[in-house]
Amino acid sequence: MHYSLNPDIYSESVKLEPIRAGFGRGLKAAGEANENIVALCADLTDSTQMSLFKAEFPNRFVEIGVAEQNLVTVASGMARAGKIPFTSSYAAFSPGRNWEQIRTTIALNDMPVKIIGSHAGISVGPDGATHQMLEDIALMRVLPNMIVLAPGDSIEAEKATKAIAENGKPSYMRLARDKTPIFSTEESPFEIGKAYVLKEGHDVTLLGTGAMTAQLLLAAELLEEMNVHAEVVHVPTIKPLDEDVILESVRKTGRVITAEEAQVAGGFGGAIAELLGEKLPTPLHRIGMQDRYGESGEPAELMTYFKLDGAAIAERTQRFISDVPRYHQGF
């Protein structure tokens, strides 16, 4: 399938927007389409972008206060009453603080509550390590019944929000604070459980989730100048993984790099390592946070320091390719 890529993605003038802005628009649209949608927030209504929904549907918005355990358990009860609750806070607090309540009253209880973790990743910036949630992917993808999404830009976040509003399942969506490049278009496909090839290549597969996919596209452009033809696959659904699309690309390239703004242990890289380990053992390098916390700084500064920007990824990929032979060993 052809993916509609924003033609400006490689330009300095590419439009930037926080991914969470797309969530705000998507939630309002979902609320217009379905009157059972309700929204609950833990004292962060503006910064998690729930304010659009609140302004439009004040009677379906619930202010919970700074009480993340109550946020998700009240939502579970509202879901029992037939509603489709969206809950939002910073990812460090939800699912960071209230994981057990999510496990028992939403995931095991199989309630269609939507957990929106905003301000995830080190690009939160100056707030520092306490607020830079890096473990949310690991925490949420181990929960049976739970869908886990990390949309790549604000346009995709809007589509993903509308999709989880109607999927009938417990769902986690990871959002970022900082403005990030918009690489998709209104015409780009989005479906829960699907991965998308954004750029074809045969030397290495670059798998990205969340805003890191934009960095992979920039890295792939730099790699072309080095005569390395990378395939870029965007994986906005971390659970369930689109095994078919991922394995098809890996069979072709025989080398894999993953990129995420999270702990690679248990995170997106962990999920890919599990998949490849069982179904298609392939040399793998995981880019992300390597068993350490972040720290205060400007987002761009931190992305450079932790080697998460396009240039650093291109350099790392080139070294990986020269160090590791291409390897095909399917079962």
């Binding site: 009240v74 509202m78 879901a79 029992r80």
Partner: peptide, 21 residues
Amino acid sequence: ENTSGPLGSGLSQAAGYAYTL
């Protein structure tokens, strides 16, 4: 009506239901 065991969450679920009503 609910899944419980880990303590302290049933009251919130009931409150969410009562709020909805």
